[in-house]
Design a protein around this nucleic acid. Structure first.
Lengths: 281, 281
DNA sequence: AGCAGTCATACCGAAAAGGTATGGCAACGG
DNA sequence: CCGTTGCCATACCTTTTCGGTATGACTGCT
């Protein structure tokens, strides 16, 4: 199976429509139809059910979509890391990706401690949208990432735990709920006049729902102050909030673990050094 | 980067010689030379240093070899698992791979317990050479494997621990060392007239050394009886030895953990059921 | 019934892959 | 020191594949 065929397949699977997929790929529709048919012939598997409204994935197609995305990410990672090795002889820089504002405190401590090491290399910090950190690690855009259990998918990475913390709910200062000293997660999510905000999906779209669309922490604090939402977050975000909001602890919410993660088999001395520093914190 | 190009690159990297790699790939040498040159141009990286004796990998080439093997295994896995999904509707069978004789006891217990489950599917057990289990899991030839820490590379897999055991050394019954009740691993490996056996590498070749080439457990027991070798192994192999050998415990050898491992994101109900059964043992 | 949308097929030109023949270059041995 | 031997690269040709345009077949909707 060639990389191109697999990219074509993924495009068709995601669009559920050959014509739109062809547009996205920048080719005409007929060659794409043929490529899919040939791929099916070579695999000996029907990947799509053809309907009058488009293409429906079969079970085999679902398998290829799931496994194929992993394979494509691995191909991209191989390519990217090779380019970078060629361009930066001696490895003078590594890329760390994190969610903006996530565990800011621990990240500063980690980077400061690492920079003090004798053999430290430059660490370029790249902020990326929520949940994109693992993707960037998988496809080689980043060498190391700050991930959060249980939200991120840590499977396949080596990790070092940096911080374990409870979650809290942030409510408007004057709201009746602000009088409580603690509540359950279910209670926090069902305060009738304070709907939960909607976080973006991996593809950048927002799910349907009553809450506001959440983009960053600054905006979040404003929305809470305005009495538009209540938001469940790890307690370390208290560093970002000031007046106008109240913090109520949650009794049953899962703990959030912040970890430093990197691909197994990483040969980077920078990543190894950062991991060693993390283990000492 | 296309799959074909990457396969060509890996062949040349492994052979360190374009002509031999071309033979192995079943194509002529000039197209392969051109393919490598084009890949280097497209990556913007020099992958090989050309010497009068062949091709030497550069740092960038080493990166591509390491990452590229992972990517190729992922591509193969995607292809294989898609074929299998198409061929076995309803998933009536999963493939488990293990080293022959490894933790025989615990494997029997696991399979018996799983077979007693109400929704159990058939488990095909495929024995493969030592260290091949993880490869088979990575490229989709197996759905689940019995691996051994610290010998196998578990990175990237989900695991369930089945058994933790000490290691022992097996020596000929009449040998002076058989009088000891315990020794250190270093002592066991340096008994002058009993050299350690040589296990095959991943590629099936044997390293150089004085000891005999080890193929399977039956042969091993014979070799120990004949006074040709002493061998360090997990204690569960005592089930396979009878007369003519003595077992001496080791005080400092690392413990061996037998785990059930499977790829993350596995959607197989068979694998999930087996993992659940393993967790209960 | 006509129309809008879908995917498939037919046919053609362009690009890429593969084969054979051959050239250049360095190391090695007489 | 010169021929031989192994290398890899280049030149040139053939075959395959890839992509584009035009068009057909089929379904659901108005």
């Amino acid at each position: 199976m060639e990389t191109r065929e697999l990219r074509y397949f993924v495009a068709v699977a995601e669009e559920a429509n050959v014509g739109r997929a062809a547009d996205r790929l920048g080719i005409a529709q007929p060659p794409l139809s043929r490529a899919i048919a040939r791929l099916e012939r070579r695999l000996g598997a029907t990947l799509f059910d053809r309907t009058p409204r488009g293409m429906d994935l079969t079970d085999a197609g679902l398998t290829l979509l799931r496994e194929g995305r992993v394979a494509l990410a691995a191909m991209e990672a191989a390519e990217r890391r090779t380019r970078r090795t060629a361009q930066t002889p001696g490895e003078s820089r590594i890329v760390l990706t994190a969610k903006p504002g996530s565990a800011g405190e621990v990240m500063v401590k980690l980077l400061d401690a690492y920079a003090a090491e004798p053999d430290a290399v430059d660490v370029e910090v790249v902020f990326s949208p929520p949940r994109h950190q693992a993707l960037m690690l998988r496809d080689g855009r980043a060498d190391v990432a700050l991930l959060h259990r249980p939200f991120d998918d840590l499977s396949g990475f080596d990790v070092e735990t940096l911080l374990v913390e409870d979650q809290v709910v942030i409510v408007p200062a004057g709201h009746p709920a602000s009088q409580r000293t603690s509540m359950t997660e279910a209670e926090a999510r069902s305060i009738s006049d304070l709907p939960c905000p909607r976080w973006p999906e991996i593809d950048g779209s927002y799910p349907d729902g009553p809450g506001p669309e959440m983009r960053d922490l600054t905006q979040m604090v404003q929305l809470v102050r305005l009495g538009r939402t209540a938001i469940v977050l790890p307690e370390s975000v208290q560093a970002y909030v000031r007046d106008g909001v109240a913090v109520v602890s949650l009794v049953d919410a899962p703990r959030v673990t912040t970890v430093l993660a990197w691909p197994p088999h990483s040969t980077s001395v920078g990543v190894a050094g950062l991991a060693r520093t993390a283990a000492r914190l």
